[in-house]
Simulated scan of single mutants.
Amino acid sequence: MNKFEYPVLSIRNLNKQFGPGCNHCQNQKESTLIKNYCPVCGTVYACQDISFDLYPGEILGIVGESGSGKSTLMRCLYFDQEVTSGEAILSTYEHGERNLFQESPQRKRYIRNHLMGKVYQNPLLGLKMDFTSIGNIAEKLISAGSRSVEEMEARGRELLEYVNIPAFRMKEAPKNFSGGMQQRVQIAKALSNRPPILLLDEVTTGLDLSVQASVLDLIKYLQREMNISMVVVSHDLGVIRMLADRSMVMLDGKVIEQGLTDQILEDPQSPYTQQLVHSLL
């Protein structure tokens, strides 16, 4: 059987709006919005009818300018924000028969702690800066029910070694680390429970080029060695080109193009994607 036959995650018609909507924008959304904003009631349609599948061991790239909705999408996938409507099916949860977005807060917490990991653009959101690095990993393991200090310490050491944090710095707080090291600690923490899915939101933004390259190498290594499925968001098409098997291009809260990354780069269909590709050349 082809490993790409069954998706590990399926998202259907995900919508997220900020604001109540009004007759003006709800009935004739296309013609009345300025980008994805209603000038009458002020509602922002941050994500509009987004659907995609993520397959085992695949990296799906999501690219788009600031305000295109890609980070809102990631927040919805990790339950940092409630969706307005839509469906998310995870093959490793309840035999793929439940809509994750309709689960109780307790079940969502379980899914976050056991079945997903997230690496935030801002390490302050993903790490406790005053804890030790190994303590950050232990925190995630405790949330998932671990109680053995020895096991947690062993797992923490193994992961920090894996992401190239030297042993003598494992009990140091991330606030003393460089941006690249903080991102690597976040990745180690996100991997602690061996989740089938990793969400990476703009993880190389603001890093020096050499540091950026080492973080990207680590992500490719994780894909190869651990066969984790990943969703990688970036405004940088160069990052997506290096990492992603397939890609989606977002603009004003909508997916305007999706397909194999090579295909999108070589033969972009929408004017916006053509502009993006052109800026990369």
Score class of each variant (00 low, 15 high):
V215W: 03
E153H: 13
E5S: 15
N36E: 14
L160W: 15
K140R: 10
I240C: 07
N13K: 13
K35F: 09
C22F: 03
E202S: 12
Q258L: 05
E266G: 12
N176F: 03
S10T: 15
F101R: 04
R169Q: 14
Q106C: 00
L73P: 05
T84Q: 04
L251I: 09
L199P: 06
G179Y: 00
N136W: 11
R155W: 08
L60Q: 01
M74D: 02
L200M: 12
E87M: 13
C22L: 04
K254T: 08
Q223A: 04
L127K: 08
L237F: 14
V232R: 02
F52H: 07
P123H: 09
N227Q: 13
N122H: 14
K16F: 12
L222K: 00
I11F: 05
H24V: 05
S143H: 12
Q274A: 07
D208P: 11
S210D: 13
R107D: 11
I228S: 00
S178M: 14
L276D: 10
D262I: 13
P268K: 07
S247Q: 04
G238I: 15
N193D: 08
K140F: 05
E266F: 01
K128F: 11
G259D: 04
N2I: 14
G67L: 08
P39M: 08
G179A: 01
K108R: 10
S66V: 10
Q121W: 09
E150S: 13
V83M: 04
P20E: 02
